[in-house]
């Protein structure tokens, strides 16, 4: 197999270029063009006015986690500890207990994610055999004035709805 070779022409050795001034003025013409365009009509700038205009979040985006449920409202998680074992930053802590709703034998009685530790890598989602943990809430900004409220417990994780339809989520191609 031959390697594709692209020979780049080395710039800057001609007399005109060595004079600097000509090239400097050409550069200044370019930047002034941009300056003048925005000065005359500042709606042409490539800016999102962030707090008011939110960015568009795609289904592939790894946002804050949530725990999914079966259609009858019982949680899918079976406390297999896959996500906790996989987590590179040790932010998930699970305590397993006996399951009483008949879906399986185990379920978590405590499921906490410390979002200050989490690096949003998505390994927990990939590891989960039950599709019980997802990062499809579309929440990208978690702020708080105290540490304890950033550790999300089971109730909050279960209560957060997903931001996308089931079809869109399946199409994200992971």
């Amino acid at each position: 197999m031959t390697v594709k070779i692209k020979t780049l022409e080395r710039q800057g050795s001609t007399f005109i270029e060595k004079l600097y001034l000509v090239e400097v003025f050409r550069g200044m013409r370019t930047t002034f063009g941009h300056f003048w365009r925005i000065l005359l009509d500042n709606s042409k700038s490539y800016v999102r006015h962030y707090p008011e205009v939110k960015p568009e979040i795609t289904p592939r985006w790894r946002g804050r986690h949530r725990l999914t449920t079966h259609e009858d409202g019982t949680m899918k998680c079976v406390a297999c500890f896959m996500c906790q074992t996989n987590c590179p930053s040790h932010c998930i802590s699970i305590e397993a207990g006996e399951r009483v709703d008949g879906k399986s034998e185990k379920m978590p009685i405590r499921f906490e994610i410390d979002l200050l530790e989490c690096i949003y890598c998505g390994y927990c989602v990939e590891a989960c055999p039950m599709d019980a943990i997802r990062m499809d809430t579309g929440i990208y900004s978690v702020i708080s004035s105290e540490r304890s409220s950033v550790v999300k417990g089971m109730d909050e994780l279960l209560a957060t709805p997903g931001a996308f339809s089931e079809e869109d989520y399946k199409k994200r191609g992971l």
């Binding site: 941009h34 925005i38 000065l39 042409k44 700038s45």
Partner: peptide, 10 residues
């Protein structure tokens, strides 16, 4: 502001 305008920002 000039830096912003030159870089297509505000």
């Amino acid at each position: 502001r000039g830096a912003g305008f030159i870089q297509d920002r505000l």
